[in-house]
C-alpha cells in the first residue's frame, strides 16, 4: 500500500505526520518505507537521521547535436515547445536547462544528428533509519525540473509493505506527480483560514485524481471547530486531530520526532493508521461529492 501525505499549504505538519506515522508503524513490526518526494525542500532526513546506502544522480535526457551530421533544417527547433533548441543561420543552439526531455527533437531529426544524453538535476538517495526504509530526492538548487526527479524517487522499487510518501505542498505539477499512483492520500491542514482555504484546493486536486482521501487536522484546539465544520460540509472524513501543543513545536524545532520526545502522542498515529485502513477498505474514494 502507498499512502501520500500532502497539503495545499506548506508548514501544516506534513513531514511531522509522515515521519511520526512511519516511526510508530515500524515499531509495530510493519515494514515501512518513508519516501521524501518534497525534493525542493526535503526535510524528513532531519528527523529520521537515516544512514544513506546509495546516492544516485538523477538525469533527464537532453539533446546533443552532432554538428557533422546536422543539415540545419531547423525541425528540432520547430518541434520544441520549451525553446530548449534554436536554429539560426542553419546552426543549432541548445539550452539543456529548459529541456523537458520529451525526445521530440531526436525523433524528428531527419539526419540522425541528435542523440540524447543525461543531464543531472539532483540525486535520489536510499538508506535506512532504524526500522524504517528511507528514500529521498534532492533537487539541485537553481533547477526547475522537479517533477522528473519526483517521478524517479516515487518509482524506486521496494520490498516494504507500506510506502509513506511525503509529497511537496501545493496543487501543481510537483504535488500531482508525487501523489499519482498512491492508494490513499492524507491531507494535512491546520484549522486557520489560510489552512482551510488551501485544503479546499488540495481536496479538489485529489478528487480530480480520484484517489481515496481523508484529512488530518494538525494544531487542533477543542474550542476551534472550523476544520470539523469544513470537512463535514465537504464530505471528507477526518482521520486524526493532533492537538496544538507548544511542546510539539519545540521538539520539532530541534529535529526530534514528536512521538519519541513526547510518547503520549503515539496513540494519535496508531489511531490514524486504523482510520486509514477503515477508510481505504470501506469507502474507496466514493464519498459523496
Amino acid at each position: 500500500m502507498k499512502i501520500a501525505i500532502a497539503s495545499g499549504k506548506g508548514g501544516t505538519g506534513k513531514t511531522t505526520v509522515a515521519t511520526c506515522l512511519a516511526q510508530v508503524l515500524a515499531e509495530t513490526g510493519l515494514r515501512v518505507r518513508y519516501l521524501d518526494c518534497d525534493v525542493e525542500e526535503p526535510n524528513g532526513h532531519l528527523f529520521l537521521h537515516p544512514e544513506i546506502y546509495e546516492s544516485k544522480p538523477v538525469t533527464v535526457p537532453v539533446p546533443e547535436v552532432d554538428r557533422e551530421k546536422c543539415v540545419g533544417c531547423g525541425l528540432c527547433a520547430k518541434i520544441c515547445q520549451y525553446a530548449a533548441i534554436a536554429c539560426v543561420k542553419k546552426k543549432v543552439v541548445t539550452f539543456p536547462e529548459l529541456c523537458h526531455g520529451c525526445g521530440g527533437c531526436a525523433r524528428v531529426c531527419p539526419a540522425g544528428a541528435i542523440r540524447e544524453v543525461g543531464r543531472g538535476i539532483g540525486v535520489a538517495e536510499t538508506g535506512r533509519s532504524c526500522k524504517i526504509d528511507f528514500a529521498q530526492g534532492c533537487l539541485r538548487v537553481g533547477e526547475a525540473m522537479s517533477p522528473s526527479l519526483i517521478r524517479q524517487v516515487r518509482d524506486i522499487p521496494t520490498g516494504a509493505e507500506l510506502d509513506i510518501i511525503d509529497a511537496p505542498p501545493g496543487t501543481s505539477c510537483p504535488a500531482i506527480t508525487a501523489i499519482r499512483g498512491a492508494d490513499f492520500v492524507l491531507l494535512v491542514t491546520e484549522p486557520t483560514p489560510f489552512g482551510l482555504n488551501d485544503l479546499a484546493l488540495a481536496l479538489d486536486m485529489v478528487r480530480e485524481l480520484d484517489i481515496p482521501r481523508a484529512v488530518v487536522v494538525n494544531r487542533h484546539e477543542d474550542e476551534n471547530l472550523s476544520a470539523r465544520k469544513f470537512c463535514s460540509e465537504r464530505h471528507v472524513q477526518i482521520a486524526a486531530e493532533i492537538p496544538d501543543d507548544r511542546r510539539v513545536a519545540e521538539a520539532y524545532s530541534q529535529g526530534l520526532l514528536p512521538v519519541i520526545a513526547l510518547p503520549e502522542y503515539r496513540p494519535y498515529f496508531l489511531d490514524l493508521w486504523a482510520n486509514v485502513n477503515k477508510l481505504a477498505t470501506g469507502t474507496p474514494g466514493k464519498e459523496p461529492a
Binding site: 513531514t15 525542493e40 525542500e41 526535510n43 532531519l46 528527523f47 538548487v141 537553481g142 513545536a249 520539532y252 524545532s253 530541534q254 529535529g255
Partner: peptide
C-alpha cells in the same frame, strides 16, 4: 527557528545568490 526552517533557508538563499 526549526531544523527544517534552517535547512530550507540555506537552499533558498543559495537560489537568490545564484
Amino acid at each position: 527557528p526549526t531544523v527544517s526552517g534552517e535547512h530550507d533557508l540555506a537552499r533558498v538563499a543559495d537560489l537568490a545568490k545564484h
